Simulated assay, not measured.
Amino acid sequence: MLKKSVQVLAVTCLIVTGSSLSVSAAGEDTQGQIDGIMSALPKFAVPMREVGDRFQNMFYAAEGGNWALASYMSKYMDNAMNPAKITKPKEYPDWATFYKEEFAPVNNAIAAQDMATFTKEYTAVIASCNDCHAGMGYGFIKVVKLTSPPDQGIEYKLASKAVDVPK
């Protein structure tokens, strides 16, 4: 028992010593560590890839009557762009405005579970995305509605209500 206690004490001392060394090192090169973290965070391209997949999945969820999934995809499509708040602070407000204003009719159609309005607004958003891409110099990125959802492992035809998504 005493041997076990000594081992625990030794390991604890090593952890505390190591922690204080890393805190000391962090104080010496905090900006270097911050820069390292910043360089590891995704800018726009990686989150936009997730946005695109969720946007496409959203259509098939709505079409299949899985309104909760459509709402979920929209919510997490927006959240996917959060790293850009830090890594692209000048560009992020464009996304935030787009989602809050131009994408709102899509979200309203999901909440109303209105497929006709959803399809109309979803199609309008595709045009808006392409206009934005062109305006930012990325006209070679043209969004089209896929003929099938990117995520094949999801049940899109599961009847649900938009309000079924946990907060």
Rank of each mutant, 00 (worst) to 15 (best):
L2S: 07
K3Q: 14
V6H: 00
A10V: 15
V11Y: 06
V11F: 14
L14I: 13
I15F: 13
V16Q: 04
G18V: 11
S19K: 07
S20G: 00
L21C: 09
V23K: 08
V23F: 14
G27M: 12
G27W: 02
E28T: 11
T30W: 13
G32T: 09
D35N: 14
I37G: 00
M38Q: 09
P42Q: 07
P42M: 04
K43C: 05
F44Q: 11
F44L: 14
A45L: 08
V46I: 14
V46D: 09
R49P: 03
E50T: 15
E50P: 02
G52P: 08
R54C: 02
F55R: 04
Q56M: 15
N57V: 13
N57E: 11
N57D: 15
M58L: 14
M58C: 10
Y60Q: 04
A61P: 01
A62F: 06
A62M: 11
G65V: 12
N66K: 08
W67F: 06
W67T: 03
A68E: 06
L69D: 04
S71D: 10
K75T: 15
M77Y: 02
N79H: 14
A80N: 01
K88T: 12
E91T: 11
Y92W: 14
P93W: 05
A96V: 07
T97P: 06
F98C: 08
F98G: 00
E101T: 15
E101I: 10
E102L: 12
F103W: 09
A104F: 01
P105T: 02
P105A: 04
N107I: 02
N107Y: 02
A109R: 02
I110P: 01
D114V: 05
F118N: 01
F118D: 05
T119Q: 10
E121M: 15
Y122R: 03
T123I: 09
T123D: 15
S128N: 09
A134N: 11
G137H: 06
F140Y: 12
V143G: 03
P149V: 04
P150L: 03
Q152R: 09
I154T: 06
I154Q: 05
L158D: 11
L158W: 14
S160N: 04
S160L: 01
A162K: 03
A162W: 01
V163I: 13
V163F: 02
D164A: 12
D164C: 04
V165E: 02
P166A: 05
K167D: 13
